[in-house]
Write a protein that binds this DNA or RNA. Structure first.
Lengths: 118, 118
DNA sequence: CCCACTAGTTTCCATTCTGGAACTATAGCA
DNA sequence: TGCTATAGTTCCAGAATGGAAACTAGTGGG
């Protein structure tokens, strides 16, 4: 009896435990950088170098790895402009953009609950 | 769902890149099991053994580690009942329960976007 | 010819995370 | 005394993750 639990609380409780939607989302939002990469791309496309500095300079290898995975998962597209020096632009797909609902929930929660760790 | 960017899209775009609420949420929802642990506890308190089998049997060590971290972060409480054999109950705090907004966003997204990987 | 530039790739290494097996504590019970 | 049960703990091994440094490609400029 929780003082009129909102509808989504019920959905969460009723959802099957394993193989549920949450696990599928976790397969995408995996690793230290993925969520932040998507966050950086929400306002619009960015180049490789822009992403790298915006994120606080993860190693090139790590960033490339993550971007390739997200490309395979159809979260973003990679466009190579045949110039010299090369210009490569990453852009969220519609599916990637739709993750904004999750990111927004994370933003709200994080703002309302400053961590009191250690 | 285009129709003039909803308010939360703007908030996401305007939020500062680093040290934002998203990063704080990621500090809590970290690792392979944490999000699923919280999911299991949303309907109500559970014992150590119940959690373990519900999650698909992670190692005892891993589960204990994660639960201790979540306890330190004030996401859940650990109650030891002095019986034999021992009974230890884990329960979400209000702060932990409030993560349901994030989990619900994950559930919805995951249900709407079955992965097309590999 | 050599250098600079971007966006990588490759190799190697360190750290972190996770799992497995074995071990502990306690009390009731046969 | 030995056995059972739960919830751990400790130690060790392997996997996953991330980072640093060196190297590549192709062209314009000096």
């Amino acid at each position: 009896m929780e003082t009129s639990g909102p509808d989504h609380a019920t959905r969460l409780i009723d959802a099957p435990a394993r193989g549920c939607g949450i696990e599928r989302t976790l397969q995408v939002l995996d690793g230290k950088w993925t969520t932040l990469i998507i966050r950086e791309l929400l306002p619009g496309p960015k180049r490789f170098g822009e992403l790298r500095t915006a994120l606080g300079t993860p190693s090139a290898k790590t960033l490339t790895d993550r971007l390739r995975i997200l490309e395979r998962q159809n979260i973003l597209t990679r466009t190579v402009h045949a110039e010299v020096p090369p210009r490569v632009v990453y852009q969220l797909t519609d599916q990637g953009q739709s993750l904004s609902s999750v990111l927004y929930a994370m933003l709200s929660w994080g703002e309302q609950h400053p961590l009191i760790e250690d």
